[in-house]
Simulated assay, not measured.
Amino acid sequence: MDQQKDIWNKIYDGVLNKMPTYDLWLDKYEKELMKSKDIPIIDLGCGSGNDTLYLIERGYEVISCDFSEEALEKLSHYTNNLNIKCFDFKDGLPFENNSTQVIISDLSLHYFTWNETQSILREINRVLMKEGLFLCRVNSTNDENYGAGEGLSIEENYYNIEGKLKRFFNEKQLRELFKEWKIEYINENEINRYKKVKIAWEIAVKKLNK
């Protein structure tokens, strides 16, 4: 089994074996989300299902995706009629071109090399419809409570922390990463749903149609 998948399966089998709880970070995008009322929203790296639950409770259809079978199995305990897909982002996204209006990646895009991250974003761009919206949150280089600057350095701001690969972003890197997108929102925010305050970047970008 892939080492990283094994790590995450163990996490979801233990520490996160509880009811998903969500914050309200998606509230500000209500008008954009409403455009996808009749089109499934892809929750990419759904984990324990925080955003999946948020969306389902508000009447959206969701495709919940993760590479941890344990995460998806746990999520199935808390909601019915789930549409789930288990795959590794690095292998591409198993969706048709221009097939969805909104993709969300909440704290799941910061586990890859720079080249892998760029490749995943190209896949996200491929799957999104014209002017489609990509919403994500990623680790900040100021996220000291959750490992920023710790571990064995692999690339700039990308570390092996006790076997777990983890990336942290600054604004310059994010603007470079999304230079071929229309940036609607980018800001460093606090997340307070954990035991300690987490510092993360929140980004909303739209697909450019050249």
Rank of each mutant, 00 (worst) to 15 (best):
residue 95 F to P: 04
residue 81 N to L: 13
residue 77 H to R: 15
residue 190 E to C: 00
residue 133 L to V: 11
residue 91 D to F: 06
residue 80 N to V: 04
residue 172 K to H: 12
residue 167 R to K: 15
residue 167 R to H: 07
residue 93 L to E: 04
residue 121 L to K: 01
residue 80 N to F: 09
residue 195 K to D: 14
residue 158 Y to H: 07
residue 94 P to A: 09
residue 164 K to I: 09
residue 127 V to K: 07
residue 124 I to S: 03
residue 169 F to N: 03
residue 147 G to A: 14
residue 106 D to C: 14
residue 163 G to V: 05
residue 199 I to R: 03
residue 201 W to M: 06
residue 84 I to F: 09
residue 196 K to H: 05
residue 135 L to I: 05
residue 195 K to P: 00
residue 147 G to H: 13
residue 124 I to Y: 01
residue 97 N to C: 03
residue 201 W to E: 00
residue 139 N to Q: 14
residue 203 I to S: 01
residue 152 L to I: 15
residue 194 Y to C: 00
residue 179 K to N: 13
residue 170 N to M: 01
residue 174 L to T: 14
residue 150 E to S: 15
residue 103 I to W: 04
residue 116 E to Y: 03
residue 94 P to V: 09
residue 149 G to V: 13
residue 176 E to A: 11
residue 195 K to S: 13
residue 146 Y to Q: 13
residue 110 H to W: 02
residue 101 Q to H: 09
residue 159 Y to M: 08
residue 185 Y to G: 00
residue 78 Y to V: 14
residue 101 Q to F: 07
residue 190 E to M: 05
residue 88 D to K: 08
residue 80 N to K: 14
residue 86 C to Q: 15
residue 199 I to H: 12
residue 136 C to Y: 02
residue 99 S to H: 04
residue 168 F to Y: 12
residue 106 D to I: 05
residue 98 N to S: 13
residue 107 L to A: 12
residue 79 T to N: 08
residue 190 E to P: 00
residue 142 N to M: 15
residue 154 I to P: 07
residue 195 K to T: 06
residue 176 E to Q: 10
residue 81 N to F: 14
residue 197 V to G: 06
residue 162 E to R: 02
residue 197 V to T: 15
residue 97 N to A: 07
residue 144 E to M: 13
